[in-house]
Design a protein around this nucleic acid. Structure first.
Lengths: 220, 220
DNA sequence: CGGACTATTGAGACTCCTCAACTAACGTGG
DNA sequence: CCACGTTAGTTGAGGAGTCTCAATAGTCCG
């Protein structure tokens, strides 16, 4: 049951569990570009994304910014290591966050094994993102990486049109995630457009040639 | 407790738990280059490494081989998704493995909450590897990647001399992990040797200049 | 000792990065 | 409502680094 539970299944909370968490949580409304916490800060709380997009990243000694991932609705983030946050978190769009002190959460989880398990799945899910990223970044061609990134957003996004994908983050954020210079991201978008596979706007993309797009995404 | 337990702490099994698992496990002795399981095989069992090195990888449609990671002593591997293995596993050195049918394991874990938790930590640990890899591969310079890889082996390996690191895998396996051509790995090794930072032999390395090595590793 | 595999080294092609200029979009205040 | 400053995005040219192809050494094992 544990093993199968970790087998990539998305957890769902009951209403009672939601209420329990809501009572313990502080609701935050943050404007775009607001820092949620910084790398190295004492990790006093865990966050649940209640809407909007958050980016987690770490500035490296070299000056480069490594993006760990993006957190969307219902994602949990703020995983600590040795009592301190390992990444920084920043609001990409306007976001609603639920902030739960670690101690409070621990108490609640101790009283609700099921909820504890759901949280666990969330943690595993967060870490699974790193695997996805590994696969994406393993590609050598910028266009392929961007295509896989767009496909990732497609799978996450609950867009009205199946071919229209919202891209909430900047080219720079994309580049830091994909391990590409922002100019390379821009050029890759231009090339995909020229090739008639995708069409890009400032904050979105549209799949033009679904077959070739799928082929490009899976040819990693 | 759960949250702190996932906070990067290495689990240790009690003797009774070991015995319990040993009774349920099949012991395998595999020669180097033996395939343990293949990507897509029905995932009927989980494996515990009892000694030696195993590589987990996936062959991509493009012909490239993406290495997920290496499994050392006491590591658990064979995580499934939707009932099938997501990676292939192969013995790098001669290895001893303990093969435990998933169903048996599930039964045991259901009866031992503590053991269940230990296993969970293992799973998280496995996934954490992906994060480490992301950080390593994010570097642009081949020498830096190889240095970080060597440092990773240093932290894992319980070598007699602190400056001598055993490298059990081939340059090709290293390259597939580091996302470098095997020639580039070779060249990076040669460069690190020329620079007087590391010295490489066929299956090992020695730290020559600890200060510069550390600097190179952390300047990612 | 030979054969197969692994590792090293070299030369040229290719891709992305860096630096730089320019254009577009946004939002703030007059 | 428009002008302007700021930020985000695009495009170009040159350079750095790795990949590929190819040939050469080195190592392991029968």
């Amino acid at each position: 049951m544990l093993l199968s539970g970790l087998d990539g299944v998305k957890p769902r909370l009951t209403d009672r569990q939601r209420q329990r968490l809501a009572a313990a949580a502080t609701r935050l409304q943050l404007a775009p570009r607001t820092i949620v916490y910084r790398d190295g800060d004492p990790a006093g709380a865990v966050f649940i994304n209640g809407g909007g997009v958050v980016i987690t990243y770490k500035d490296m000694p070299s000056g480069k910014r490594r993006v760990a991932g993006f957190r969307f609705y219902a994602d949990v983030f703020g995983l600590a290591e040795h009592g301190a946050y390992v990444n920084s978190a920043r609001a990409v769009t306007a976001v609603t966050l639920y902030r739960i002190p670690t101690e409070t959460l621990t108490t609640i989880l101790r009283q609700d094994a099921d909820l504890e398990f759901q949280f666990l799945c969330k943690m595993v899910d967060e870490l699974r993102q790193a695997q996805r990223k590994s696969i994406i970044v393993a590609r050598r061609d910028a266009a392929g990486r961007v295509a896989m990134f767009v496909d990732m957003l497609r799978l996450i996004g609950h867009s009205t049109h199946p071919d229209v994908i919202e891209i909430p983050m900047s080219r720079s954020d994309m580049g830091n995630y994909l391990n590409l210079a922002l100019e390379s991201v821009s050029r890759a978008c231009a090339q995909l457009t020229r090739d008639g596979i995708l069409e890009f706007s400032r904050r979105g993309a549209r799949i033009v040639d679904r077959a070739r797009f799928y082929k490009l995404v899976t040819s990693g």
